[in-house]
Design a protein around this nucleic acid. Sequence first.
DNA 1: CGTTATGTTGACCTCCTTCAAAGGCTGTGG
DNA 2: CCACAGCCTTTGAAGGAGGTCAACATAACG
Lengths: 233, 233
Amino acid sequence: MKPNCTNVEWRGRAKCAACEIRNSVLFSGLTSHELDAILQPIDNLHVPQSTVLYEQLAAAPYVYTVRSGMLKLRIDLPNGSQRIVRLVQPGDVAGMETLVGERYHHTAIALRDADVCRIPREAVIKLDQTSPAVHQALLQRWQRSVDQAEHCIVSLSTGTAEARMARLLIMLGCSGNQPETMPSREDMGALLGITTETASRIMAEFKRRGLVHTDRGSDVVCDHAGLAQLAHG
Amino acid sequence: MKPNCTNVEWRGRAKCAACEIRNSVLFSGLTSHELDAILQPIDNLHVPQSTVLYEQLAAAPYVYTVRSGMLKLRIDLPNGSQRIVRLVQPGDVAGMETLVGERYHHTAIALRDADVCRIPREAVIKLDQTSPAVHQALLQRWQRSVDQAEHCIVSLSTGTAEARMARLLIMLGCSGNQPETMPSREDMGALLGITTETASRIMAEFKRRGLVHTDRGSDVVCDHAGLAQLAHG
DNA sequence: CGTTATGTTGACCTCCTTCAAAGGCTGTGG
DNA sequence: CCACAGCCTTTGAAGGAGGTCAACATAACG
């Protein structure tokens, strides 16, 4: 989690204006001039897997946009159990609740190694008020959060555990082409509302059927067509 | 679904400024003067139970705020099944996706008799740009949508069917004091991700245990404490 | 009064959880 | 280098929760 943008010596500083996913991030509507003016308080962080970005109920000074990798947003329940309610992918924003409230509503953890931009809430609030383009982008991100949360209900909490797992693998980007790093069985369970053991059993069964194939380490390649078939049933 | 506000003869027209839930609706930040200026395109509709307000994928010209009653937002899946992903209660807004997109993402149906205000999307977009108070209220409503969708995941899709049903009854306003009209067993199933039969069995069991007591018709009173106990386990 | 939706209940069976144990991978220290 | 601990994964066996299919009851409605 080393800051970059605010380090005057960081060579990547200029890259913000030429950020490869700039078209899909929050500030895509800004000109380079406007961008420069707000760059100062933004930190570009590298976040290793399993790093906690922020914790549920903690004071919420920052909004985070994801440039690469993936975050999980987890809700911890009073009885000790926990449930992952959203996956945050490149182009998405985490922690937007800071714009209308004091505290984070989830615990955010890197599901894979990730690069994120950390933006002070005041900077976003100010931009929201001064730039119509950013304002519109904010509304879109918010709607996207709603869509993703509902997608979690519909895709990951409906049907048999097998169908849910197939949908999760597709969602994780298993297009069948390049290998993807898998979350732990425990995370899969927390995402799908099933036990770790069941998640393990289903993944093992998928391997036996040749639907997924372990590449090296935790990387896997998937039979996208086969998974899509299971996802529908 | 009779329009009121735009009917010049409607005596309730003036009531908008004195709306009993005005403090909790979208335009709570406006002065009476500002309010008058935008009142014209707003229709106040009475929506009988089971009325479809709008359909998933249909063109989305309106945003709806709920004044009384309750709406369900349903997602229809390609395979024919359907899942209720959110309940919209007084003070909440339905159809906000119109502000950043062309089409509704759900089918909205009155779960109980309801009173709603129907607001053209252009009116909301304009207000969002001209009134900081409305703008802030919009952001808050959006965040509330996210919170509610996630609450659906955590409360209504986690744990045993019995615990979920208990949480649903509490959510529906069964404070134990006054009777509430119940949704159908089918709706309960679609909300909790269980079958209609299981929903029926659980409700029947709740009645036998004295946790709920049918008043008259579909009205019931609940043992709030007893339900809260089940909701935790 | 029949007709049609909605609710209830039973029997059976599948899927998932629970509890338990064993296997595999990684890092650490001798 | 090996031994060991710790963690994650896998697998087994047993039991329970919920799904499925079917029958029947009840209520709503022409």
